[in-house]
Design a protein around this nucleic acid. Structure first.
Lengths: 332, 332
DNA sequence: TCCCTCCGTGCAACCGTTTGCATTAAACTT
DNA sequence: AAGTTTAATGCAAACGGTTGCACGGAGGGA
């Protein structure tokens, strides 16, 4: 059996409460007593039992990150991963642990379970994992919760953090125009996800009054046919891709059919994928700082946990352009 | 305040212990009482307080995965990520939660802390995160622990799970030879990591008596120079790359200098990176099943937690070859 | 019919910390 | 010097489950 606070108390000749107060600094204890208690703890290599503590205080010092395990792509993309990294680190720095919870619809219960069972003090959750049950739970108990991504319209009652999808899109297009491209097309998976729709919004805004074409990849059966039509009929000369897989596929098709990047077609893609710079040509990207995203979300959540204020805060993490070869300046 | 077991007991007119026994199935309770208790729990939407429970039982129903946050690459590579996914899922299925803990040397304490403070019931930990303190702790208390990767020589006293690096390497080389290549070179980061050294071992074994060249990428200042020498002087005609970044870099150099894959040079790489199939040409890979890796590690750990047996078990997850264009059969 | 088992349940202690309240002694006030 | 504040500490009751032991009653064997 490990030592308890009582063992320390007995050894020093004080009451358990005094030891507790020294550990937590919750009352003024004489220097002498403090020293002796510290020494005893050191000597016996005492560590407080976190479960007993959580039980007594009602605080777990743990936050949960809900993951969308339905979508296995989350695990292949670095977006998510760097966030996990940042969240863990920030949590740790503020004395919290990080629990990973499945937000899968079929398993379902998991995330709400953690709240019901009081296993965590707060939740970081992607909007698409937020279901009705969880929503009610969070609202009713004012349970600390930060959305990792902008919620869809009409659900603005949560705190959230997101990257600047709209701004990133604008950045990309302005860059293309700057480099001498005239007609950029936007490739997204579909416009149902918030981030794709934000990117589309930015695209439309910058190109207001000009030619706009948005391709929904999930509707395109024959990518090359589409690309060929875009190039020959629509005279599109460049692309913004919403993710790396799209960028890979598009550039492969183009190259296989004898097009040269960036001379025949410019390309910029979202997310600074590690391999983007090893592509041919190295891809210009909109770097989304998911590390900061995770960090800010965590800070916000822990602030909510600790002082119960700062509700309905929201923050947008700026994106930045990393210029590489795929958008080299064109001779006009 | 949420309902407690006592509220249920009072409502039904039984003692709290009876309710507890119904919840846990730890004694025979009459059908009638069971029904009434179940109904009351349902009606009040009762959920047991996990902290109280952990406190009483000494079991947290939580396992920790230690991550090497020093190495940010871990988060960029899908190896690790798919494992996290699998670990969470398996844990969840067996009624455990997953905690992510930093194994960073500088933060240090974190992982041991969890053990000291009894915040988790077991640990999944990459060998390189295993430090002396943790090692002692684990051994002394017989704390359940599974290494996620084969430990270096001399540390065989832990349970571990790893992918079959040696076998994967053999698979790759035999495949190359089968396809008509004669002289495959092995590219690794360096041979200090266990997995690279295992891969090198497999390489040497299959090519015993034949030409063997292992390139350590961390020592190569000029990759193209090296490749050119390998091709012209050593007559190497194919490569096994230990990771995707190497494969990317090597294939880029080759293509930039006018070589055609697979006709001039064959290539197979470790890890079925999602983008490997979008490469030009699509890369043949040794698929390492990190999903199974994580799942098996978790099963093993939970078995240790639950029946305190199965110590020092070890398991090797087989790899498999996915044949794509980069190793197309050569005309001899 | 008597004794023994076993089923279903209750009692109460226990898990390790925290914390409101009480207490004492010392240090100020005036 | 008496009264009042303040610092330092102890007491004991929580916190919400779990579990060993005990006990009454029903059923079964002799």
């Amino acid at each position: 059996m490990a030592y308890t606070i009582k063992d320390i108390a007995k050894k020093v000749g004080v009451s358990p409460s005094t030891v507790s107060r020294v550990i937590n600094g919750t009352a003024t204890i004489s220097d002498e007593t403090t020293q002796k208690i510290r020494a005893a703890m050191e000597e016996l290599n005492y560590h407080p039992n976190s479960m007993a503590r959580s039980f007594a205080t009602g605080l777990t010092k743990t936050i949960a990150l809900v993951i969308d395990a339905d979508n296995e792509k989350n695990f292949a993309n670095s977006f998510f991963n760097r966030s996990v990294f940042a969240i863990e680190k920030q949590a740790q720095e503020e004395g919290f642990n990080l629990l990973i919870a499945n937000g899968n619809k079929s398993v379902g219960v998991s995330a709400s379970q953690l709240v019901y069972e009081k296993k965590v003090d707060g939740l970081i959750i992607p909007p698409n994992c937020m279901n009705k049950e969880l929503e009610n739970l969070v609202k009713k108990d004012e349970f600390p919760c930060v959305l990792l991504g902008k919620p869809a319209k009409g659900k603005k009652t949560f705190s959230w953090v997101d990257i600047d999808n709209c701004g990133g899109s604008k950045l990309a297009i302005r860059h293309l125009l700057n480099q001498g491209y005239r007609r950029p097309v936007l490739f997204v998976e579909n416009e149902e996800t918030v981030f794709d729709s934000e990117r589309a919004f930015g695209y439309r805004e910058v190109l207001a009054g000009k030619c706009q074409i948005i391709v929904h990849m999930d509707e395109e059966a024959n990518l090359w046919e589409k690309l060929f039509a875009l190039y020959t009929k629509e005279k599109m000369d460049s692309a913004i891709c919403s993710n790396n897989e799209i960028a890979f596929r598009v550039s492969r098709e183009l190259k296989q059919h004898g097009f040269a990047l960036p001379d025949d077609f410019g390309m910029v893609t979202f997310d600074n994928y590690p391999l983007a710079e090893y592509m041919e040509p190295p891809l210009s990207v909109i770097d989304v700082d998911t590390y900061t995203l995770g960090m800010v979300a965590t800070k916000q959540l822990i602030a909510m946990i600790q002082n119960k204020k700062a509700k309905n805060a929201c923050e947008i993490i700026p994106t930045k352009l990393i210029e590489r070869e795929s958008t080299r300046k064109r001779k006009e």
